[in-house]
Amino acid sequence: MNDPYSVLGVSPSASDDEVKRAYRDLARKYHPDNYHDNPLADLASEKMKEINEAYDAITKSREQGGGSSYSYGGSAYQTAGQSRGAGKNAQYIQIRNLINANNLAQAEAMLNAIGSHDAEWYYLMGSVYWRRGWMDQAGQYYRTAATMDPSNVEYRNAVQYMNQGGQAYRPTGGMGASMMGGDAACNMCQNLICADCCCEMCGGNLIPCIGCR
């Protein structure tokens, strides 16, 4: 295994807090939630495992204990479709497995060979497009699936995830601009208030309170 300190990018003389902070930032970066149905999910989970091991090794060697309770469970992550309600017929299960194995061409060929298109068909076609990076088409297929079978939680979740814009890592400190716009100013205020709270904890002040002057 690599040197646990270099994995976390801190020096061996770093304080426990610094180690924890470095670990948390990295864990936020490679968190499975950022790799929802993503073709690079395997790379991220490897990275996550490496970070968890490094953090555990450091806390163990420092004999502080309790640190491992912070470790994010990378292995608990499962790709969509694998765990959630599988389709009725065997063909759909096979297609789901192909999608999860990133074999999109074959999954698409099998889907195209199916004559009648029910909600599950639209959902799986959406998943194929999603993994390929065709987000617009994926959204249209997910919406069709959810309209055809409004009671299905999996389809509904997919539409909701699609509409809400998903998530990815953003560094702290005002680097969190969104492509969707509209709430940029709002975010700025939130960041400022956040930063102010942090500063006040350290004894500083970004937004001076009039009464305190």
């Binding site: 950022n34 993503n38 987000m135 959204g139 699609m162 990815a168 969104s178």
Partner: peptide, 15 residues
């Protein structure tokens, strides 16, 4: 709808 799709692409780019 268009910008939400772009947001997903941007997320994938960042990840």
């Amino acid at each position: 709808v268009l910008r939400t799709g772009m947001q997903h692409s941007h997320n994938a780019l960042v990840s």
